[in-house]
Design a protein around this nucleic acid. Structure first.
Lengths: 117, 117
DNA sequence: ACAAGTTGCTAATTATATCAAGCAATATTA
DNA sequence: TAATATTGCTTGATATAATTAGCAACTTGT
């Protein structure tokens, strides 16, 4: 239950694309070679170092724990789940306008949901 | 700054001795070879895997962050780091569907932004 | 159409984490 | 004292993380 379908590679690729960065841009920002990044995103690496995982989590604003979970290193505990904030949204990920737009959109979503019920 | 006097090896050895365990006992409990444990405690390993670090932290009841810090992987605890980042949305806050909808909407926003440029 | 750049990727190589075997020193017990 | 475990450790072998160099498919600009 609560099977985390997302692989490590899948998460990393999704996060990178969300930021609209190429592998070579991430290489510059993280110091990790684009070749290796490609392997990571295609799930060809089984046990990345804590270093690597940390750098990418930092860059993509994914919590380290979340990466550890999808890398199969730890299992999601409810304790951690409470602490976890979702990787997709963080303050340096979003411009003011985007943040406001998303908040508005969230309100809209919930407004709809309420009606549907 | 914030020189952490303690090395990774130092911490691991101290923790093990506190529990009065031999390297071979830790080997059995953790699945990490005593040879490698010895190298770890003597600071001969530069970048242990997230796996290894996690297992030992678990066994010794050392927080993972603490080990990461003494391994030189992070400077401050990631707990601290997470506080520095203001997250607009937490996972407690969002259902899976909402999350996905917001991600899609964010992609849409950025697609527009790109054209405007 | 062509040149120049960008993209993600792979094969080959290097670096290093990790393990298996065994050694010397100390502890234990007969 | 001798025999036997138990200790931490080193060396050599293996697995795999991570890099360098380069290739083919696309874009972009001229």
């Amino acid at each position: 239950m609560a099977e985390n379908e997302k692989t490590l590679g899948g998460m990393l690729r999704e996060a990178r694309e969300l930021k609209k960065l190429s592998l070579r841009e991430v290489e510059v920002k993280s110091g990790i070679s684009n070749a290796y990044l490609s392997q990571l995103e295609n799930d060809k690496i089984k046990k990345p170092s804590a270093n690597t995982l940390y750098k990418l989590g930092d860059l993509y604003n994914i919590t380290f724990d979340e990466l550890m979970v999808s890398a199969g290193i730890i299992e999601q505990s409810s304790e951690q789940r409470n602490k976890n904030v979702h990787y997709a949204f963080s303050s340096d990920n979003l411009s003011q306008e985007e943040e406001q737009a998303l908040i508005d959109y969230l309100k809209f979503l919930r407004y709809q949901q309420k009606d549907a019920k």
